[in-house]
């Protein structure tokens, strides 16, 4: 009896990892080009933006909300990075800060609607999504903006002990989120809010502020992911990031987050991002055309969530 329970526990706790390892092994055997440092680091650089976005998304999802605006905020961040560097001629680091702040403000806008005006998160962020994309188009006049050489693209090209800076930054942001969730009052209360908002409010906690900040963080990280996207192409484009919210949500859910709130794990969400990355990468290596790729991706998400939902059954 005891053993059976612990076996179930192991499955519940580690199924995301097991799925990742299984997928990784399949990839290794499916294509000789997969398991090379070059390919793996490429994956890391490609998916840095999604990692940032997913961390922000995760905290919103933990409160029981959702943030549909991340893709548009990413586009806004992408355009703003290019504009600030090119038109305003700011140096790189202050520009990145400015982009973070812009994202924070846009995120807080959704947060105010959700926390203080009781908008459904879906609706509030849907509106923000449209607005942010619109602003990105207005600023860029719908055309891509070239960035000066050796500025933002350094983000992509720099290596630290041979490891791309983007991968290092992704690792750091995940570590920060793991720390926030496990050790801090903030992380603790977000989980509590997602679990039962009324009880938290009646415990004398200012629930609205916590929720507001979750959207702010999500916005800031999405905008920063925009800067990362700019660094990859050296161009600020208002077209990027469409549909990114669904990838971020998928990553959180594959990582065991519950859209009902109160559950979620930053490290597992990273694994969720990597699972999405592997699926896409291996199919590219195997030269699967892009439309069937999407179908495959959808099916694998369903599979992943089915595995997750077995948790609930056993827990009863």
């Amino acid at each position: 009896m005891k053993n059976k329970i612990s076996a179930v526990n192991i499955w519940n706790n580690y199924n995301t990892y097991m799925m990742f390892i299984l997928l990784f092994v399949i990839c290794v055997f499916a294509s000789p080009n997969f398991f090379s440092p070059r390919n793996l680091m490429n994956i890391g650089r490609q998916y840095a933006a999604l990692t940032f976005v997913s961390m922000g998304m995760l905290f919103v999802i933990i409160t029981g909300g959702i943030d549909l605006s991340v893709g548009s905020i990413l586009a806004l961040g992408c355009v703003m990075t290019a504009t600030i560097l090119t038109d305003l001629g700011w140096p790189l680091i202050p520009s990145l800060f400015a982009v973070l702040i812009i994202g924070l403000i846009v995120g807080l806008f959704s947060g105010v609607l959700v926390a203080y005006f009781n908008f459904a998160p879906f609706i509030a962020t849907l509106a923000t999504m449209t607005i942010a994309r619109g602003i990105a188009f207005m600023i860029s006049n719908g055309a891509p903006i070239q960035t000066p050489a050796n500025t933002i693209s350094l983000l992509d090209s720099t290596r630290i002990f041979g490891i791309p800076l983007l991968i290092v930054m992704s690792a750091i942001i995940v570590i920060i989120f793991v720390f926030l969730q496990r050790k801090t009052v903030y992380g603790r209360i977000l989980i509590a809010i997602g679990s039962n908002e009324d009880a938290v409010r009646l415990s004398g906690i200012r629930v609205k502020r916590y929720k507001l900040l979750a959207y702010g963080i999500s916005g800031a990280l999405a905008a920063f992911a925009g800067a990362i996207t700019t660094s990859r192409s050296a161009v600020g484009s208002p077209l990027v990031g469409s549909g990114l919210e669904s990838d971020a949500i998928a990553a959180c859910v594959i990582g065991g987050a519950s859209l009902a709130g109160g559950m979620g794990n930053p490290f597992k969400t990273l694994i969720g991002v990597l699972i999405l990355a592997l699926i896409s990468n291996i199919m590219n290596l195997l030269a699967v055309p892009s439309y069937p790729q999407d179908v495959m991706k959808g099916l694998i998400i369903i599979f992943a969530v089915l595995i997750q939902s077995t948790n609930v059954k056993y827990k009863k």
Partner: peptide, 19 residues
């Protein structure tokens, strides 16, 4: 619905008012 966080730990429930 209002008194406890049913799915969370006893520890977390007991200290939430006083973090």
């Amino acid at each position: 619905n209002e008194g406890i966080l049913l799915n969370l730990s006893i520890l977390l429930n007991t200290t939430i008012t006083n973090l």
